[in-house]
Design a protein around this nucleic acid. Structure first.
Length: 865
RNA sequence: GCCGAAGUGGCGGAAUUGGCAGACGCGCCGGACUCAAAAUCCGGUUCCCUUCGGGGAGUGUGGGUUCGAUUCCCACCUUCGGCACCA
């Protein structure tokens, strides 16, 4: 056996074996229990980053562990290959997005292989290939037929200089990223998918997703945002016609306190009033500028302007002024809200600013109300006051009574409102799946017939930042109308890339089928048993996938509603941030690899200097690895230097998967050191010659203790991998076992036999995390079968047996002593043993014992005073 | 702003159902080996006090429940993730 651990040769050998044996090729086998382990597929951005390594290592550990548990494992991989970064790269390098994307895929695939992930590459999916996205188009047309997909206008960011639509991330401080021009909002026709029709089901089914983190279910529930309230009509007359201005509210009990109405800038009534007053028109225009992002809308200064129109209060008949408010969203509810300054904080601030009346109509436990300053309890539920017939009613009673009265007059109805909006999928971008429609002057929007699918995206265009290059390609745009045959134009919008990722997990199970989107194999593999990905996808991607799967169910294509049975959301990978801020000019960030840390004698950080010039740099704390902060670590550099196993071990050991993980060069070194120690421990054991067979009856106390630890560790590690998913504690437990093995006096034959068993267990238990070194060590330990095909070993109950157990003794809750009692000692025996203990007595002293609490197998607490 | 998390030694973290706070690893200190260094191995390492037996404090802050709280409850502070055209 090699005395030195040499990762590069053993990793190449292990990978060759898996490749040659087709180890990870998954085949449907109804006689075996399947396990579908899915990691979120990457966007091919260039090279793998540490977030990918973390994601895929977690998936690979689970896959390999489940394989050892006897499951028929499917672990596929693919590429989320459409998207904006490819267009940005195209502009920067004048290379078509397709070339850039395919080159990146080749690089990243090589990297994934070098990390030793057990992936079934025969099922690889690439979303920018026509054989994949043709099914996006096909299903979109089915949705159009069913009315699930439909057309309406939507708001986009418009760059007036480049004459192009901007993504939110291309808008920086309200200006276009390339031109610096002030961004405008613009209404354009788009295609939407009716996810709101599924809102009730998507919300209700969350309860059944016990394998998902509670926080993700809560976030989804809040996102869907079911609120039960009342739609209220405020009557008014316009052009001699009686109309109603509708608002939605969950606080109909405060209707008597409504002193104004605020409408969105895009509301028809605002447009109508603006036509008569230039200053209002200017204000409406101002509101239409600026961000379409909710975070910006929520934090911007609340502004308004009177329309000088009034509507009638539906209960009192009083005139209520209508204002335009920049904080009212056209997309939510009716695009208008009733202003109740007395009991809503935002309305209160608005009323104060514009001198609108503030009225108390809810009493909370008789607390004194003053309209001078807002108090948080003003928004609490209470009883109606100054509300005429409704005085004295509580929240629920008042809502019911007011809704009934409004309904009787035809001025309102109880209604369920959703925060969730329909999913706009049109993108005015080139590098995406073409929306299969043709615009004909005579026939309107005509779907491309199924026989003409796919509508293939040309792959050789280079975008220049001004508009969509597809629109400039006459040969592609101009076509014949499928209905009347006359000249027509293709739709140049492409689909949101979330469409691609909403069903790729189904395609893996139906790989290479060119006749259908999905086939019967979905029935065997789905649902996904374990899905792993970043917490940043907790809402959108997961919600869209749940929706899309239901649509396919309703179209009779699949027989399931929930695609992901268990979900693990992994945390971010972070690293230190260092920078200098020159007196003039921009902040410069330095890679932590180029910075020398200075510590005091306790190891506490006192300063940092740049290696290049020895001058100090400032510390910016710790943040997510990113290009902008220059604090990323290229996984390739770790693989090249230490091997894939060290990279995998470090990343799994440094933190539990759900928490963010802080990079540490020293800890990587530590992981490498552990693997060297493991190698050396096996080598030293084998050097001493073959170990005799294990004779359990002949073991001494020390041998029995080591054997017990080895068998206990088997159960602990299986629980950590399989149930708790705390890979860090699993690895720590094997480290403890290895520490015990190396400390063990292994001179006798029986001792060597126990050590041999413990080493085999350690190697088997580590094999999901570090598959290459354990592949080699397993061979060295004398096994012909590859370790990847070995089952998880069974613990021997006899090895776990224990006669005596140590208990903690507390006096008044403080640890004071320890006693050893027989494992089956009854409570009275334990109690008297604790009280008889000399150290316990010293602390009890003259105090009288009030109570003795015995927790079997754990502790005794003596309460005395 | 709204929604969701997380705060424990010098650092990453452990404590699984309310029961020994700090497992495991990093760093640091001391020692062995070496001409020397690296590598490796051994020992120590929460803080404060100590007559070296031990004693006291301690899990972001402030309160509460309990024989017992890192764990449960209330309020607050800080940091991080998402907010619909980044993926």
């Amino acid at each position: 056996m090699q005395a030195q651990y040499d990762p590069s040769t053993i990793e190449a050998a292990a990978q060759r074996h898996w490749e040659a044996a087709g180890t990870f090729r998954a085949t449907e086998d109804p006689s075996r229990a399947k396990y579908y382990c899915l990691s979120m597929f990457p966007y091919p951005s260039g090279r793998l980053h540490m977030g990918h390594v973390r994601n895929y290592t977690i998936g690979d550990v689970i896959s390999r562990f489940m394989r050892m548990q006897g499951r028929n494992v499917l672990q596929p991989m693919g590429w989320d290959a459409f998207g904006l970064p490819a267009e940005n790269a195209a502009m920067a390098n004048r290379v078509p997005p397709a070339r850039w994307t395919y080159d990146n895929i080749a690089t990243m695939k090589r990297q994934l292989k070098s990390l030793g992930f057990g992936l079934d590459w025969a099922r690889e999916v690439t979303t920018c290939r026509p054989e994949y996205y043709r099914w996006n188009q096909w299903l979109f047309l089915r949705m159009l037929e069913k009315g699930i997909a439909y057309r309406k206008t939507g708001t986009v960011n418009w760059d007036p200089v480049d004459q192009t639509v901007l993504a939110n991330e291309q808008v920086i401080d309200g200006r276009g990223w390339r031109t610096g021009a002030l961004v405008e909002k613009r209404e354009i026709p788009m295609y939407y998918l009716g996810i709101t029709a599924y809102a009730e089901e998507l919300l209700g089914a969350l309860d059944g997703l016990g394998g998902w983190p509670e926080r993700v279910r809560t976030m989804q529930a809040n996102w869907i945002g079911k609120s039960e309230g009342v739609t209220i009509g405020f009557p008014y007359e316009l052009d001699g016609e009686r109309r109603q201005l509708k608002v939605f509210t969950t606080r109909a009990d405060t209707l008597m306190g409504a002193t104004f109405i605020a409408v969105a800038a895009e509301h028809p009534l605002a447009a109508r009033a603006a036509a008569m007053r230039p200053e209002l028109a200017a204000f409406v225009e101002e509101c239409k500028r600026g961000s379409i992002m909710e975070a910006d809308l929520a934090t911007m200064e609340k502004k308004g302007m009177a329309t000088h129109l009034c509507v009638t209060h539906p209960l009192t008949g009083a005139a209520v002024p209508v204002w335009v408010g920049n904080y009212v969203l056209m997309g939510y509810g009716e695009g208008a809200v009733m202003g109740v300054p007395g009991h809503d904080e935002r309305d209160f601030a608005f009323a104060k600013q514009y001198g609108l009346p503030i009225r108390q109509v809810i009493d909370v436990d008789g607390r004194p109300y003053s309209s001078d300053a807002w108090q948080p309890w003003y928004a609490d539920h209470g009883r109606c006051v100054a509300s005429g017939a409704y005085d004295g009613l509580d929240h629920a009673q008042a809502v019911r009574a007011i809704a009934a009265d409004l309904e009787a007059r035809g001025l309102g109805a109880r209604q369920v409102q959703w925060r969730l909006r329909d999913w706009g999928i049109s993108r005015q971008r080139y590098w995406g799946c073409p929306i299969p429609l043709v615009h004909c002057d005579g026939c309107g929007d005509v779907p491309v017939p199924e026989k003409d699918l796919p509508v293939v995206l040309p792959e050789d265009l280079v975008p220049d930042g001004s508009g969509n290059p597809l629109a400039k390609l006459a040969a592609w745009v101009n076509c014949a109308c499928p209905k009347c045959g006359r000249p027509a134009k293709r739709e140049t919008d492409t689909m949101d890339t979330f469409v691609d990722s909403s069903w790729y997990f189904l395609r893996y199970a139906s790989a290479a089928n060119d006749q259908a989107m999905v086939d019967a194999r979905v029935g065997y593999w789905l649902p996904v048993d374990q899905y792993i990905g970043g917490i940043e996808h907790a809402i959108l991607h997961l919600l869209y996938s749940r929706f899309w799967t239901r649509v396919m169910r309703d179209l009779g294509l699949v027989n399931l509603a929930e695609p992901f049975q268990n979900l693990l959301t992994q945390g971010m990978v972070r690293n230190a941030i260092y920078f200098r801020k020159p007196a003039s000019g921009r902040v410069v960030y330095y890679s932590p690899a180029d910075v020398e840390i200075e510590t005091d004698v306790r190891g506490q950080l006192v300063g940092a200097v740049l290696k290049a010039d020895g001058e100090p740099v400032e510390s910016g704390g710790i943040g997510t690895m990113s290009k902008s902060k220059n604090n990323g670590v290229d996984p390739q550099s770790i693989i090249d230097r230490y091997g894939a196993d060290t990279a995998r071990l470090f990343i799994m050991f440094a933190a539990p998967p759900e928490l963010s993980l802080d990079w540490s060069d020293e800890a990587v070194e530590g992981a490498f050191r552990f693997l060297k120690r493991l190698w050396k421990a096996v080598e030293a054991h084998l050097e001493a010659g073959p170990a005799p067979p294990l004779e359990t009856a002949a073991l001494g106390a020390a041998d029995r203790a080591l054997r017990r630890l080895a068998h206990q560790t088997l159960a602990k590690v299986a629980d950590d991998y399989g149930r708790r998913r705390t890979f860090n504690t699993a690895i720590a437990a094997v480290m403890e076992l290895l520490n015990a093995v190396t400390r063990h006096e292994a001179t006798s034959g029986t001792a060597r036999a126990v050590v041999h068993e413990a080493l085999e267990f350690a190697v088997l238990m580590l094999s999901p995390v570090v598959p290459h070194i354990t592949h080699a060590l397993w061979q060295e330990l004398g096994h012909a079968r590859a370790i990847v095909d070995e089952p998880w070993p069974a613990a021997d109950p006899a090895a776990l047996r224990q006669d005596a157990v140590e208990l903690v003794v507390q006096v008044n809750g403080k640890l004071r002593s320890k006693i050893t009692v027989a494992v089956d000692a009854d409570e009275a025996t334990v109690r008297s043993a604790a009280l008889a203990d000399a150290t316990t007595q010293r602390f009890v002293g003259a105090l009288s014992v009030r109570k003795v609490i015995v927790v079997p197998g754990k502790l005794v607490n003596v309460v005395a005073n």
